[in-house]
């Protein structure tokens, strides 16, 4: 068994006092020059890589009604409904875990991932997308903030941990 690394206990009270002073000094240093790594979310949004799984768009005219998506869905978010004698999927985003299995399994590519990740719903009814609504493009909500949203990407920094720089794309 490996030996657990243990810090030596300091016996000398003067050196102990010095350590306390050093700790307080370090705190004061951070207090005077704060190194924040907060992402100011509504004003700044982290730019995500392409292929990051987002909300799902349904193409109704491609769908063959094979029910594979409803079968594979691990959270039972995707269910089939019958419209004019044909089966179409509908989705409940209250249950969806964005695993993307339905997109992968669809044999005719009638389901696609979209690059939309921030959508706000005002009621629980709006989580459910029947096939016709599911077929439409996502309507981007008008921004709540007066200023345009800044897109930033995180960079590992040796001094501060994480810093956010503006994303060029």
């Amino acid at each position: 068994m490996d030996k657990v690394k243990e810090y030596k206990k300091e016996k000398n009270p003067f050196r102990l006092f010095g350590y306390h002073l050093a700790a307080v000094g370090e705190g004061i240093k951070h207090f005077i020059r704060p190194k924040r790594m907060t992402l100011m979310y509504p004003e700044e949004v982290q730019a995500l890589p392409t292929g990051y799984r987002g909300f799902i768009r349904f193409y109704k005219d491609l769908c063959t009604g094979c029910t594979m998506c409803a079968m594979i869905c691990p959270a039972d978010a995707m269910k089939m409904v019958t419209q004019e004698g044909k089966k179409y999927p509908r989705i409940n985003y209250g249950r969806c875990i964005f695993c993307g299995f339905c997109v992968d399994i669809c044999p005719v590519d009638a389901l696609k991932e979209t690059p939309i990740h921030d959508v706000a719903f005002t009621s629980r009814e709006q989580f459910r997308f029947p096939p016709d609504l599911f077929n439409e493009e996502f309507q981007e909500e008008p921004p709540l903030l007066s200023k345009p949203v800044k897109r930033v990407k995180p960079i590992i920094d040796e001094d501060r941990g994480v810093i956010y720089v503006p994303d060029e794309q």
Binding site: G27, H30, F31, P34, K35, R36, M37, T38, R160, G161
Partner: peptide, 10 residues
């Protein structure tokens, strides 16, 4: 605020 500054928050 002081605790936030030291812990890299706002």
């Amino acid at each position: 605020k002081a605790a936030a500054f030291v812990q890299m928050r706002y």
